[in-house]
Design a protein around this nucleic acid. Structure first.
Lengths: 169, 169
DNA sequence: TCGAGGTAGTCGTATCTACAACGATAAGGA
DNA sequence: TCCTTATCGTTGTAGATACGACTACCTCGA
């Protein structure tokens, strides 16, 4: 988003880079910025909603939801880390905080002496149920409401492709 | 993403929530998750690329680009904070780090004794020029490459609407 | 001219994250 | 069995962020 227009800094009368550029790659770069902005702004709004309603923050929700969706509502630490895209070191402390709040348990893996499971506690399931309506309202209000049914289809296919490519090792 | 299917935790044979749901709201919730996953995964990849190439990290790039695009390549601190969606407190320290690296200057605002400008330094412009090719390659590789021209149009319109709504105070 | 209320930026503090190094355990070939 | 190599989760450390309190300064009406 800089580099073309070498002379922009000298030509004081042109104050900004052109926002509309016909090249296809430029279109994608503009889209990327809108993608980042939309993400940051919507996340901020939703986090505010969650905080105000005094329910789980997004990071805790992600952990507990991943456990909820797992077989037997439990996952090995490294699987959980991969599922929610955090490092193992970060997950150790995040899980410790959530465990301290009583929303999950840690259990040794009998089949692997190195391993630990994080397992959803009843209180964690309850917290998910309390949080979800607030979260869902935020998603609808700040995100879904602005998208037509057709756009939802297009976006969904596109994001699936992008995530799949970015996540393969 | 939890709350329906009250009995899921009892019905051990059904291990996961259904991923495909016909309701339109559910489609939007699934889309939201894909949106989050795609964002996190692509950002991770691009940050890795930037780090490996030893150019600016995204947070510094955002600051310097905002300055580059501003009239006279400078912005008041609070304008800059709003432009890149960080708090003023966070921006104070971020700008301090970038200034220490010599990529921007802070200048008092003669018209308002409370105010400070952050102004792009020549070294900052140079850093932008060095970083951009790496960043652009990352965007193309991890994001743009996976989107058709038509999808780019649809996504761009959609994100513009979403950001506009989320950012209005 | 003064004073009340608002705004700008900074800073103390608490959180949270990544990175790298570590001890413990597992897996597999010699 | 022994030994090498890899993986698992944790931890020390450093860096980055948000929140709230604080000072300095501006604005505007009496």
């Amino acid at each position: 988003m800089v580099g073309e227009a070498e002379n922009a800094i000298e030509k004081k009368e042109r104050k900004r880079l052109p926002v509309v550029d016909e090249s296809l790659e430029q279109r994608r770069n503009v889209l990327w910025r809108n993608f980042l902005t939309a993400h940051a702004a919507v996340i901020d709004r939703i986090e505010d909603d969650l905080d105000e309603a005094e329910v789980l923050p997004l990071s805790w929700y992600d952990v507990l939801l991943a456990l909820y969706e797992a077989p037997e509502h439990k996952l090995r630490m490294h699987e959980l880390a991969r599922a929610i895209l955090v490092t193992r070191g970060g997950l150790t402390r995040l899980v410790a905080r959530i465990e301290r709040a009583g929303l999950l348990r840690r259990e040794p893996d009998r089949a692997d002496g190195r391993g630990l499971y994080a397992a959803l506690a009843d209180e964690g399931l309850e917290a998910l149920r309390t949080t979800w309506p607030v979260y869902a309202r935020g998603i609808a209000e700040h995100f879904g409401r602005h998208l037509s049914d057709e756009e939802v289809e297009v976006l969904d296919r596109a994001f699936n492709r992008v995530s799949a490519a970015a996540q393969e090792r």
